[in-house]
């Protein structure tokens, strides 16, 4: 909406009509729910993730797994796994299988990114400022990544078989516009979650806009500090 308004500055009539249109859509688009599609066919699902003590948990991965054989579209969202200040930024990324994953080195040094897990084994060197898209992630998996030059670097990529994925905001909330109603497994994942496969889930039949809250039975353990013990910039790797 905003973009169109900018382009049509010279045409007051179009601007005005678009403004009117946006006023109709805006309340729905920026509602508290976080759902941003006004389409009548979609069902807004909000998920809240809370700690045992009831606090909102941020950066928890939530995804909806279809259980009734719903055929879902391929997400067009490309993921960026950044390397910045000798750390994986963000620490956790999520992507739908078969989507493009961009590794972007924002540092002025080379990194040697790898995953050692037998599921998704890969490695490549990525020079300063480069983007690497050479690695395909074609099936759901939990990818633990490191850098073979900077051992303290630690990042995760969760690959899921659904376009409904996201990370919770500061309110512990994430929302999905579900296009195919039916039964879903609502899964919460975090690499430091004290649970089997680092995740917990509930099965829900999604037929109407709804909100669900998942409360973790155990506190998640500390996320690793991605920082060298020594911040001197001219260390030789002896």
């Amino acid at each position: 909406m905003i973009i169109y308004m900018g382009i049509s500055l010279n045409n007051k009539i179009i601007t005005f009509s678009l403004l009117l249109l946006s006023m109709v859509i805006m309340p729905r688009a920026y509602s508290e729910s976080g759902c941003n599609d006004g389409s009548i066919n979609n069902t807004c699902v909000q998920v809240f993730v809370k700690s045992k003590a009831g606090q909102a948990l941020v950066d928890m991965v939530v995804y909806l797994e279809p259980l009734n054989g719903q055929v879902l579209e391929q997400s067009s969202q490309e993921v960026i796994v950044g390397q910045f200040d000798k750390s994986f930024t963000p620490y956790i990324s999520v992507s739908q299988s078969k989507s493009t994953v961009n590794f972007v080195n924002k540092d002025d040094i080379t990194h040697h990114i790898y995953s050692a897990g037998s599921d998704n084994k890969f490695s490549f060197k990525i020079r300063a400022g480069e983007t690497n898209t050479s690695t395909q992630f074609n099936h759901a998996s939990e990818v633990a990544m490191g850098c073979n030059i900077h051992d303290w670097m630690s990042g995760y990529l969760l690959v899921v078989d659904t376009p409904y994925f996201g990370k919770t905001n500061e309110k512990g909330q994430v929302s999905f516009d579900v296009s195919k109603q039916g039964k879903y497994n609502i899964v919460v994942w975090h690499p430091q979650m004290q649970a089997k496969n680092n995740r917990m889930s509930i099965e829900k039949n999604i037929v109407a806009p709804s909100a669900f809250t998942l409360t973790l039975p155990e506190d998640i353990s500390d996320t690793p500090v991605q920082k060298s013990d020594d911040d001197f910039d001219f260390l030789s790797d002896y």
Binding site: D230, F232, F234, L235, S236, Y238
Partner: peptide, 8 residues
């Protein structure tokens, strides 16, 4: 541990 075995 600095370059060229310099003391940091």
């Amino acid at each position: 541990d600095a370059y060229a075995w310099a003391s940091k």
